[in-house]
Amino acid sequence: MIEIINLKKSFGNQQVLKGVNLKVETGEVMAILGKSGSGKSVLLRHILGLIKPDSGRVLIDEEDITQISSRALDRVREKFAVVFQFGALFDSMTIFENVAFQVKEKKRFAGAALEARVKHVLDDVGLHGVEDKYPGEISGGMNKRAALARALIMEPKIILFDEPTTGLDPVLLQQIHSFIKTTHLKYGFTGLIISHEVPEIFDIADKVAVLDEGVIIETGTPDSIQNSVNPVVHSFVSSRFAKPE
């Protein structure tokens, strides 16, 4: 479970998070919606422990990661996997090496077992025949799927998705969402998806939170968010529904 309590963060004179409160239950997929610059990515980096907040708490399975040592933080991070906005695959490694990297470093599998495991997760995200290619040699959509495979290989309890469909065309967007949905059903992870893909995100999220000007202004099911009476949420959702093709 992820719980964020009154999280505040400023960079210089600019206050990005002004008291975020959020709870993601174990096993559910929550989407955080918000305009560009609303603080979504900063919030994600706090959950990963990459940034220290000015005040507030980030609880991962009831452990406050803002107050723990870096060694303890690494132990908490073992529960996580992240799919970064642009994949963040290691560009000097092949897709196979990228997916296998973490497993190899942590000595979970080796040799034929490792190879079988990598092939298995690549199959789960529909990637075939790209094991020996470098991230620069495959398409953006394939990179995102490889990033998802890299996240899945350790079978983490929590996967954080930082705008996983940014820059993709509608067909690829649907494809990535479908892989997130099917892998969630298969692996049962808790998912937190930072996105502004409305209405597509409503198909894969159990709950949706809307972040605006550094605070969560509404949390609810996709249906309740779509029918929200909050003018900011309503305006955000309806403007996205009306976006040009």
Partner: peptide, 18 residues
């Protein structure tokens, strides 16, 4: 530097690898 701006360093940290 390129690893930093393309979030590859964050990816390493998020894997609990220093």
């Amino acid at each position: 530097g390129i690893m930093r701006i393309s979030e590859q360093i964050d990816a390493l940290a998020s894997m609990a690898l220093n």
